[in-house]
Nucleic acid binder design. Structure first.
Length: 565
DNA sequence: CATGTCACG
DNA sequence: ACGTACGTGACATGA
């Protein structure tokens, strides 16, 4: 959202890479074509939907071009997404990695021409004699990658459809969302930062008093020395590296018998909110737009989910009151309202669909509270006799199933012994035999063909599924069980985003889609059109697929994101 | 750059 | 006996 155009590179046949520089500025730089002239000449090509383009991560190019008044359309192929759809579990999908992996070709690196670290110069300062081969190679390699990857994808019709009907159309939707950005009340966050800072100072003083010496509350190493060496508290858990852990669940337990852990926990929660959110978000406001513009990544999460960074808007706090104050700072323009729409119990519904389990499907069909229904079945009581504790336990079981739980994991979550946990699991599988069947089938499928699939055919390779190492294999099994549910949910919300985007383009120019948080879409809606927007957004999201259970969408509105929830 | 921790779905 | 619920990104520390 701040980068400037320096030049454009193209290739129309393999080996034909070319670079048009127009923004290089350094002592002795040759005279270059005028930027406006170049863009005006190229506009008819770039804006022609029938002239099909190939790019590596063209969302980036779309966003830059849009800021220069060019509407890049006709982008038929993104080589990054070709690689991602072909195998999402590959570690990276950047051009350098793909060139090496699929073409056996070592590309020129950006660092080779611009330097690195604090000595790095702007691309506009790179000598054109060096910039041209680098930039032209970018275009050439992208074309070569497409020539290699597209035929491979075409051999797999389901993946080809996923690519053409979901991932490629989503590129411009995400570009639009990123450009739109979200409005943040910076003053509100700055005030909260100040308050948190005050309370942290007080907690720090108290903690030092209890410890009998000063230490850095932000240092796990120093906390560990104070707690376990100086004060001699019992070590309940170790880190993967064998150090005594000071993680939240450990400190929670120690807090029952000692005073310092509570102080550390309170300090940590405030420190997290301040350093990651209340301090940082105001800094991320774009000077031109006055809004915050995240980046959505379409080729990062192995399951098909999006991810968000710089800043990550998919992990804004919600669980505590102090955290929700941060959501209250997510606001909208004058005359607009924040609208949030989220899928209810999406992954459990997908489990009901994929497993075909009659009991679970009926629970959703009659609109039941599914955790309560599960509790009634597992603990063999009437629906209205279910206690809060039974419902809580049932909810943990339902979540555990989505994650491919073990009795050990469930036991730890519920703080019960694993024998009891195993009894719960057994009871569940007796009541919902379809689910048990589905879990077994999924494990077997992963073992036999090496991958599992979402409802829309997205392939999720199960690395380590046949590993000889027991722990690695079990990890792969859990991932394989979770993947079809998390992945199908990702497919569904992507389809919903396409549907909503179309509706906005055709008949709702006063609605802006501003964020996606895995099962939730957030909008800015003109106050006058809230009712129709609610109906249409719900229709788009519920209607993306016909599963064997209804897709229920909860909608809320308010002056800010917290109120809309 | 690895590590530990913690924010979200 | 192994070592434990799935998927992410950002921060501060400390080497």
């Amino acid at each position: 959202m701040t980068a400037e155009l320096v030049g454009i590179s193209f290739a129309d046949t393999v080996g034909s890479g070319a670079y048009v520089p127009f923004g290089h500025v350094y002592p002795g730089a040759p005279q270059q074509l005028d930027r406006e002239l170049v863009l005006n000449k190229l506009k008819p090509l770039l804006e022609d939907s029938h002239q099909i383009k190939v790019g590596q991560n063209p969302k980036y190019d779309m966003i830059i071009f849009a800021r220069y008044g060019v509407d890049l359309v006709g982008v038929g192929y993104d080589t990054m997404l070709e690689s991602y759809v072909f195998n999402s579990t590959a570690s990276r999908h950047d051009m350098d990695s793909l060139a090496l992996k699929y073409l056996g070709y070592k590309t020129l690196k950006y660092e080779d021409v611009a330097g690195k670290g604090k000595g790095q110069i702007n691309f506009s300062e790179v000598d054109i004699a060096q910039a041209a081969p680098y930039a032209a190679e970018d275009a050439d390699v992208t074309l070569r990658l497409h020539d290699y990857l597209w035929p491979k994808l075409k051999q797999l019709p389901t993946l080809q459809r996923l690519f053409q009907e979901i991932e490629m159309p989503l590129v411009s939707v995400l570009a639009t969302m990123q450009r739109t950005g979200v409005k943040i009340d910076a003053d509100m966050l700055r005030r909260q930062s100040g308050e948190l800072g005050q309370r942290m100072l007080e907690l720090e003083q108290e903690a030092h008093d209890v410890a009998g010496q000063p230490f850095n509350l932000d240092s796990p190493k120093q906390i560990q020395e104070i707690l376990y060496q100086k004060l001699g508290l019992p070590v309940l858990k170790k880190t993967p590296k064998g150090q005594p852990s000071t993680a939240e669940d450990v400190l929670q337990e120690l807090a029952e018998d000692y005073s310092l852990p509570r102080l550390i926990l309170d300090y940590r929660s405030m420190s997290k909110l301040r350093s990651t959110y209340t301090d940082k978000l105001p800094e991320m406001i774009n000077a031109d737009t006055g809004r915050v513009h995240t980046s959505y990544h379409q080729a990062v999460a192995a399951t098909g989910r999006l991810s968000s960074s710089d800043p990550n808007l998919q992990n804004i706090p919600v669980r505590t009151a102090e955290g929700r104050r941060i959501r209250q700072a997510f606001i909208c323009d004058q005359g607009f309202t924040v609208l949030s729409a989220d899928y209810s119990q999406i992954e459990l519904r997908i489990m009901a669909h994929l497993s075909g389990d009659a009991g679970l499907q009926q629970a959703f069909a009659r609109g039941a509270d599914v955790h309560r229904a599960t509790a009634a079945e597992v603990f063999d009581v009437e629906l209205d006799a279910v206690t809060d504790e039974q419902r809580r336990n049932a909810k943990a079981i339902n979540f555990g199933l989505i994650y491919g739980m073990s009795a050990f994991g469930l036991g730890r979550q519920l703080k019960i012994d694993r024998t009891t946990a195993q009894e719960y699991v057994n009871l569940y599988f007796t009541r919902y035999p379809g689910v048990k069947d589905f879990m077994d089938r999924t494990r077997a499928q992963a073992r036999e063909q090496g991958f599992v699939e979402t409802v829309f055919g997205r392939r999720l390779y199960a690395q380590d599924i046949n590993a000889s190492n027991h722990a690695r294999r079990q990890y792969a099994e859990r991932a394989a069980i979770n993947a079809p549910m998390q992945g199908t949910a990702a497919d569904l919300i992507k389809l919903a985003m396409l549907a909503v985007h179309d509706w906005i383009n055709h008949s709702a120019d006063d609605v802006k889609m501003v964020m996606q948080v895995h099962d939730e879409l957030v909008f800015e809606v003109a106050e006058t059109d809230v009712d129709s927007a609610t109906d249409n957004i719900r229709r788009c999201m519920s209607g993306v697929a016909e599963l064997s259970v209804p897709l229920v969408v909860d909608v809320g509105v308010g002056r800010n994101w917290d109120e809309a929830h």
